[in-house]
Amino acid sequence: MSLRIVVTVKYVPDATGDRHFADDLTVDRDDVDGLLSELDEYAVEQALQISENSDDDVEVTVLTVGPEDAKDALRKALSMGADKAIHVEDDDLHGTDAIGTSLVLAKAIEKAGFDLVVSGMASTDGTGGIVPALVAERLGVPQVTLLSEVSVEDGTVKGRRDGDAASEQLEASLPAVVSVTDQSGEARYPSFKGIMAAKKKPVESWDLSDLDIDAEEVGLDGAYTKVEAVAERPARTAGTIVKDEGEGGKQLAEFLASQKFI
């Protein structure tokens, strides 16, 4: 038996950097350092653990859609231990929204061949968290998302989804799309050996024509949504700061009373 796992990853602007928008109101990806989205590291980790715990012949492919620099995200995932990588890159992809991204990912996943797709819970820049559900809808396979625990055995994926009202145990037959949360387990650091090995691992590059996608279906022109205005949130006005000299709690109570909270 073989098990083909595709891990979708995103290259995002560093959240600790000065993130902002470009003139066309898309996310500026040039002026801020980018990296593999932290939340996707958990997806890579779980894919590697599934691979390590399996008796099957498992191949882990990492897939990203993004500009030239997005190769850095693939390289990181390869150095963690993924086997190969696919980079979908095309100038016409600039400004693609979640619906369009799910199209590109689904076409690429189909072309690569898959038994299991593993994604992070959301990207750290867009934070929508809807792409895994969209990819499952497009591929017509079960969606087993937001898992804090995941395992694969005998063609079945099982996991625990911790919701607001309840914790649920889920189960689906492969092929399936899974997403994992930051509670699924600490992601490993690439070892020196892993970093060296990653340099020799294959990275395929595909463009839209490789995926039979028309330019009009993606990019800013193909988007289903339009950002009409962007405004920086005004800095909060400086508040009152007091040093506790024995009465700090009472002073705070006085402030809360003045604001009618008590």
Partner: peptide, 28 residues
């Protein structure tokens, strides 16, 4: 966090928070 606050207390939360809780109880 103090860059964001409307009101901040620099102090040990183990002193400030129980005092605040007591004070609210008293005021109520």
């Amino acid at each position: 966090i103090f860059d964001l606050v409307d009101y901040g207390v620099v102090g040990d939360l183990f002193d400030v928070v129980p005092q605040l809780t007591e004070e609210i109880k008293t005021r109520k």
